[in-house]
Design a binder for these strands. Structure first.
Lengths: 128, 128
DNA sequence: CCTTGACCTTCCCGTCACTGGAAGCCCCGT
DNA sequence: ACGGGGCTTCCAGTGACGGGAAGGTCAAGG
């Protein structure tokens, strides 16, 4: 398979696949003409990476999880720990965003939103 | 005031303040020796920017809001629109993160997290 | 008067995970 | 033989800074 094939089959852009090779997440073969040559296992890995990234795992987490994925002697506890930590980061981020949403929501509601210049949003944010 | 003073009084790092000058958000004076010289209005603007950034507004939004803040003839509707759009982006992001949280949470719960290699997390994410 | 140390300046590189684009090779169909 | 699409590498840019180097400036202490 050429890169275009794995790109369409994995849903990842070709650019991203080249980048993943560059940083060592995958090691596709090369044909005589210099083209990358992907096997089914490569495709499988790329799909795996795509799902990890869609869940917001960092590239470093992906590297760790990929190593665990390929390690037949892994302990599931190691996988769980990475996922758990990521879950905690996600939950913290949700909390932050909810605080922002609450503040913004109040500000938006407090503003008439008409043609007059008086604006409680600016008033509040500029320090009263 | 030198940059160190406004940094500690605004809570923004000096690096950030220089950056804000570089991109035109503020225009502090200079003294004869080349040092930036900030007035109270500059400090006020920086505090304003700090609050906007803490709410997650982009620099471009900050630029717009700063212009509206300085425009005595603004319409509050323009301010409200910027805030409203940002609120919508925040809400969309919260939704995304909550979907991720739900998925991750299920995965984490499904994994025994012991010394054995069997891992529903990897199984699920690698495509069953 | 000299030095020390804290402050200031600019400049350049690094972050993270790509994305866009240029220049050039390769392969297939007509 | 040629045109068009796909492939290659390399370089630059993204957003919003942060780290650190090299060097100028200022106030206080010896």
């Amino acid at each position: 398979m050429n890169i275009g094939d794995v790109a369409s089959r994995s849903g990842l852009p070709a650019k991203t696949i080249r980048y993943y090779e560059e940083i060592g997440l995958i090691q596709p073969d090369r044909t005589a003409n210099g083209y990358r040559s992907f096997c089914e296992a490569d495709l499988h890995k790329l799909a795996f990476l795509g799902r990890l990234r869609a869940l917001g795992f960092s590239i470093e987490d992906c590297r760790t999880l990929m190593a665990l994925y390929e390690d037949e002697a892994r302990a599931s506890a190691d996988v769980k720990q990475v996922a758990q930590q990521h879950l905690e980061r996600i939950e913290a981020k949700i909390q932050d965003l909810e605080a922002v949403r609450a503040t913004l929501s109040e500000l938006v509601d407090s503003c008439a939103g008409d043609s007059r210049p008086d604006c409680p949003i600016l008033k509040n944010l500029s320090g009263d």
